[in-house]
Nucleic acid binder design. Sequence first.
DNA 1: GTCTATAACCTGATAGAC
DNA 2: GTCTATCAGGTTATAGAC
Lengths: 222, 222
Amino acid sequence: MINFEKLFYLCPGSNKSIMKKDPKDLSTEEKIKAAARKIFTQKGYSATRTRDIAEEAGINLALLNYYFRSKEKLFDLVMLENFGQFISGVRALFNEKDTTLQQKIETVVDFYITQLKTNPDLPLFVLTEIRSNPKKLQAKGFSKDLLAQSYFLKQLSEELKKQKKAIHPLHFIMNLFAMTIFPFISAPLIKTMGVGDLEFSNLMEERRKLLPIWIMKLIQEP
Amino acid sequence: MINFEKLFYLCPGSNKSIMKKDPKDLSTEEKIKAAARKIFTQKGYSATRTRDIAEEAGINLALLNYYFRSKEKLFDLVMLENFGQFISGVRALFNEKDTTLQQKIETVVDFYITQLKTNPDLPLFVLTEIRSNPKKLQAKGFSKDLLAQSYFLKQLSEELKKQKKAIHPLHFIMNLFAMTIFPFISAPLIKTMGVGDLEFSNLMEERRKLLPIWIMKLIQEP
DNA sequence: GTCTATAACCTGATAGAC
DNA sequence: GTCTATCAGGTTATAGAC
């Protein structure tokens, strides 16, 4: 077993990164940020009105500007934290030296499924905002060597070489994230086809165990 | 080989469903619709200003309301066409009686990869709008029996039974669409990691061949 | 720090001339 | 059918009292 818990604490804005507090104990600033986070993530930048955030936070509209100056500044803050929560936790994991490839895959699947069960709106938010503003990625220090220099990629490449597979390792990384994240993104569609909330949740629990097996099988078998 | 081309013609709004015309030959109404389609799909409902659509169409703002009465009416039109393009084509395919499971999977992969190469913004648009307005789905006649009653599901279930796998068939359908669509959704992220446009395109071509093999392997092997 | 009131701006929609 | 000019409504941001 590896340091699974650690991932959560690495995520800025994670539920687990702050001690749980009674909403009444949060400072006004924190209340606004929490409300903004919730509504921005759900509806995106343009569809969110600062009035809604103020109401959700239980404070006055003017206070929002008092603390954060503008809607955009507040958004940038939330956006960076959401993005961090979505991806930064993986950075540390990718460079663990003392875990196998399979263990890393198990951890990624486990981490995201847990994360997305409580925060299903995150991927659509992150992907939409990245598309409409790719610059802010690099500002966050996100660059090509996050993956390229990672120990994870090294392990994966070696495994592929061992199997004599001349397939780009990126294919398997895409498969990993696709199979893990996509079901949550398309949940509204899946639920339209007669899958209830409980059944959906159960399916995701099954995937927690199935995905690592499947992904390893694609990597290892001829 | 099956009727692959047919799928395109079943898609309202598909590039292939209209003869290609010089933009100058399009009627004003068509020009507005095309512009609206482009900008709505790229930026979503709220972030789109009717002024932008008018400019893109090369006409005046007032004309937009003259032809379509309101922003929302225009959007609904585009939304239904986009949604149709994204999913309706599959309906017919799912009920072909004379193709094998594997052939259907090959066709779905082929269809979506071709579709998404020219229209990569479609999935994020469709998924975002479905989440914020699930009702419009049923209005379009989309219901649980699209999949539940399909011949595709029947074939898949039988194959699983033959392999004595007690795994919900939905898992494999999720895998199919996830592995096909997700790479396009996350393209901006992938390109940040040093993958150029050409390399990305090549990777997708490789997936056209690899995905059916992988998906069948997961279904068939123990 | 927090509120009310209001300024400044933006956006969708329409009136009316051509 | 197409345009210019403008209205009506809503949104962000600020001024100023407490």
